[in-house]
Design a protein around this nucleic acid. Structure first.
Lengths: 261, 261
DNA sequence: TTTTGTCGTTGACGAGGATCAAAAACTTCC
DNA sequence: GGAAGTTTTTGATCCTCGTCAACGACAAAA
């Protein structure tokens, strides 16, 4: 089973790293030719798990990992297939979804840069990960990564914290799915997305939505039509503005009131 | 945020322990007078996390932990309150629930003997844990337990696996909440409870239900009335029989078809 | 340019489950 | 044993959201 962790949490967990640490990590080794890791160019290296490592530990990581790009709409891994890797998303956005035999679908999450997938070590993937935008990941072979975990308890401890934070988010999503109205679901979704983007690009009322209305519906337990209706209603009521590729939040307070715990 | 782990998983993770290990753990120390741990009498000591420890490690555990009984309907800990302990349920059943400000409630899980709560280290509890039956827990102070984790990577590794298994269950519950009909939800619930009891007491078509219909409704995102109606309908259709304190499953195949992934 | 496909929006209608109300069954406690 | 409270069941009615259908906007392909 795969685990997804939040970049902002990584930061919390590891503490913001100073420039020194970063340079050490980057200078501690020669960037290998492709395939291999390309960490000096990594957009999020100062926030990802990697920065928890000493230079020598970093060298091990590099041996078992490599950078990999995926075009939009491509599949990183598929539900039911053998799980060979652990992934750290460094750019782009992913949709994580579970499919029922009759075609019904539940989106269990959206991954953003800094998120980690596959921290569990189930033999097969329990959901499918598709790229919503062109995406870049660092991928590590499971046996190698697992061995490394046994060797680096500090790293393991942090991943543990990330996993339990992920569980907290999943339980919060249960409340949304089980006990909230369509309007509240949309509000909770928009506020949640804003929060996640805020951690990466700083707070803003502009919320990019790389996923379709269908994806949002499958995430919130609604149909496309209901998602569309609710969003146009919110736009009519001047709570949001629908813009290409996302929304602009006009009345954040109202949305937060609708979404409040 | 609190983590709940499945006893059967512990067993999987640790491997079934041989009698030798058990005796060692139990003999490795003198059982302290109350308050303190009372491990020699523990019903599930051969399956709980404790058995992952050497005798000397066990001694540390005993220093920071103590056994504690809770009567039915009492609260072990409450959403929003400061989280001072980590809990290992050794007897009874708990309801784990989140409350919205307006009174709506979502049950995020039911804990059974062997389950672990509070593995995360959030400052406050994110849900309330109430005893459905008289319950017994081993509770450990967080600072002490945390220190121990830093010291025992093998223990940490196992707890990590338990946490990510818990996340997998949470994601499966998202599918139930978001994409299943009332009938399918009940079927999934009954099949799931049967599976959990089966791991503790061996497979049986008799499934005890220590929670009320209201609890079940709050777990599945339904009202009491719908839960009651669906269960009586299943009884009318000879799929189940409703007995005092639970149900007897007559047509497991049909239930599993309704609940299938 | 036209064609084709995907995605988003809107409307009409209906069903599944919620809500409201009340009685029955079961517990708990004098 | 009876009284009071809780839990479960059942019925009648309502309403939110799903379903079905059609159209418009937009992008990529021909």
């Amino acid at each position: 089973m795969d685990t997804l962790v939040d970049k902002a949490l990584v930061e919390t967990v590891f503490g913001r790293l100073d420039a020194n640490t970063r340079v050490m990590a980057c200078n501690g080794h020669k960037a290998p030719q492709s395939p291999g890791l390309d960490c000096c160019d990594c957009e999020i290296k100062d926030q990802s798990v990697c920065c928890a490592l000493d230079p020598d530990e970093f060298e091990v990581l590099e041996k078992i990992g490599r950078s990999q790009g995926y075009p939009a709409k491509s599949t990183i891994f598929e539900q039911g297939r053998e799980a060979g890797f652990v992934y750290n998303l460094t750019a782009g956005a992913l949709r994580l979804s579970k499919l029922l035999p009759d075609g019904r679908r539940q989106v269990v999450g959206f991954a953003m840069p800094g998120d980690f997938l596959g921290l569990d070590f189930e033999p097969t993937h329990l959901y499918t990960a598709d790229a919503l935008t062109p995406a870049k990941v660092c991928q590590f072979s499971r046996p190698g990564f697992s061995e490394m975990l046994d060797d680096k308890p500090r790293l393991l401890r942090r991943l543990m914290n990330m996993a339990s934070h992920e569980l907290a988010l999943a339980q919060e999503q249960m409340v949304v799915l089980g006990r909230r109205t369509a309007e509240e679901k949309i509000a909770a979704f928009l506020v949640g997305m804003r929060k996640r983007y805020g951690r990466i690009h700083g707070p803003s009322v502009h919320v990019p939505l790389p996923m379709t209305r269908l994806d949002i519906g499958d995430y919130l337990g609604l149909t496309v039509e209901t998602v569309s209706r609710m969003m146009t209603r919110m736009a009519r009521e001047k709570t949001i503005v629908i813009v290409p590729d996302g929304v602009r939040l006009l009345d954040v307070q109202r949305l937060e009131r609708l979404a409040e715990v």
